Computed example of a mutant assay.
Amino acid sequence: MFDWISGFIDTVGLVGIALLMFVENVFPPIPSELIMPLAGFNAANGDQNLVAVIIAGSTGSLAGAVFWYWVGMRIGTDRLKRLARRHGRWLTISPDEIDQSNAWFKRHGGLAVMIGRLIPTVRTFISVPAGVSEMSFAKFLAYSTVGTVVWTSFLTLAGYWLQSQYEKVSTWINPISTGIVVLILGWYLWRVATYRRRVPKEHDRH
């Protein structure tokens, strides 16, 4: 994948970086941990401007975040609650818990979005609950921008400083990403297994 990403960036330039980061946010298997360090390495070689690389990567990443925010808005609370009534066990959430989550997100969601944008795997989907809870777009964009620029800058500067060893960034971060995926999967399975304890069947129908 390194060769393909490298060739794409060499061919398309800054627009290619933005496009790859957009796709990375929409389709997570294309990791930013490969894209931005390579772009930073190119900047260290003088092929591209470092600040322009960070701006391009952040712009593409934010576009992907906005896409998932829009998806959350389209789903909406009412539709999600209907799905929870029908498939609550597999969604691991009840209609009442959706209301509680929305209330929490409206109080603390900005910080959750900003921190979520710094966490591998979580950063892709943190925008969905922001959209579902109808967080104002301006607030969502502001917090997302801070988290996104910090993450993108970190990856780019790591590649810039490591130069030809930029692949090490992915080596460092991949175990963290894998650990987070395992934790999320374990949490999901626990929620499925304990759903009836948390949400009695009679209550779930209301």
Score class of each variant (00 low, 15 high):
Val181Pro: 03
Asn102Phe: 08
Ile35Trp: 02
Gly147Trp: 05
Ala56Ser: 11
Gly13Val: 12
Asp10Pro: 14
Ala103Trp: 11
Val113Tyr: 06
Asp204Pro: 12
Phe8Met: 01
Ser136Gly: 03
Trp151Gly: 02
Leu34Lys: 11
Ile54Ser: 00
Gly60Ile: 02
Arg82Glu: 05
Gly147His: 05
Ile176Trp: 05
Pro129Trp: 03
Trp151Phe: 00
Lys201His: 14
Trp68Cys: 11
Asn25Cys: 04
Pro200Met: 13
Ile119Met: 13
Leu141Tyr: 15
Ser144Tyr: 10
Thr121Ala: 13
Val66Tyr: 11
Arg85Gln: 07
Lys201Arg: 14
His203Thr: 13
Thr11Lys: 10
Ser144His: 05
Asp96Gln: 15
His203Phe: 14
Ile119Thr: 13
Leu50Val: 14
Leu111Ile: 03
Asp99Arg: 03
Ala84Asn: 05
Glu24Trp: 03
Trp151Ala: 04
Leu118Asp: 09
Val132Ala: 03
Ser177Lys: 08
Val169Ile: 03
Leu157Arg: 01
Ser32Tyr: 01
Ser170Leu: 00
Gly109Ala: 08
Leu157Trp: 02
Lys106Met: 06
His203Ile: 15
Leu162Ser: 10
Ser94Trp: 12
Ala158Asp: 07
Trp4Met: 00
Leu91Glu: 09
Ile9Asp: 10
Pro120Asp: 07
Val128Gly: 06
Met21Lys: 02
Arg117Gly: 08
Ile54Gly: 01
Gly147Ser: 08
Val66Ile: 14
Thr178Tyr: 12
Gly179Met: 01
Ser6Val: 00
Val12Leu: 10
Gly76Ser: 01
Phe137His: 03
Gly116Glu: 14
Val192Arg: 09
Pro28His: 09
Phe8Ala: 00
Arg86Thr: 06
Gly13Thr: 04
Ser127Phe: 03
Ala84Lys: 07
Arg74Asp: 07
Trp90Tyr: 14
Pro200Thr: 13
Phe2Pro: 00
Gly110Phe: 07
Arg196Lys: 12
Ser101Ala: 09
Ile184Ala: 09
Trp70Ile: 15
Asp78Pro: 05
Ile176Phe: 02
Gly76Ala: 06
Gly64His: 12
Leu83Ala: 10
Pro200Glu: 15
Glu33Leu: 09
Val182Ile: 02
Glu134Pro: 04
Thr178Asn: 15
Ser177Gln: 05
Ile30His: 02
Lys168Tyr: 02
His108Gln: 10
Gly159Pro: 09
Phe105Lys: 06
Asp96Glu: 14
Asn25Tyr: 05
Lys201Trp: 13
Asn25Met: 04
Val26Leu: 06
Ile55Asn: 13
His203Ala: 15
Leu80Glu: 04
Phe67Ala: 05
Val192Met: 04
Arg196Ile: 03
Leu20Glu: 02
Asn25Trp: 09
Leu162Ile: 14
His206Lys: 12
Ile180Arg: 07
Ile173Glu: 07
Asp47Gln: 15
Lys106Cys: 06
Lys168Phe: 00
Ala52Trp: 07
Thr92Lys: 10
Ile173Lys: 11
Trp70Thr: 11
Trp161Ser: 12
Glu202Ser: 09
Met1Gly: 00
Lys139Val: 04
Trp187His: 09
Glu97Ser: 06
Asp99Leu: 02
Gly64Ser: 10
Thr171Asp: 01
Ala138Val: 11
Arg197Phe: 07
Val169Asp: 04
Arg198Leu: 12
Val192Gly: 01
Thr148Glu: 05
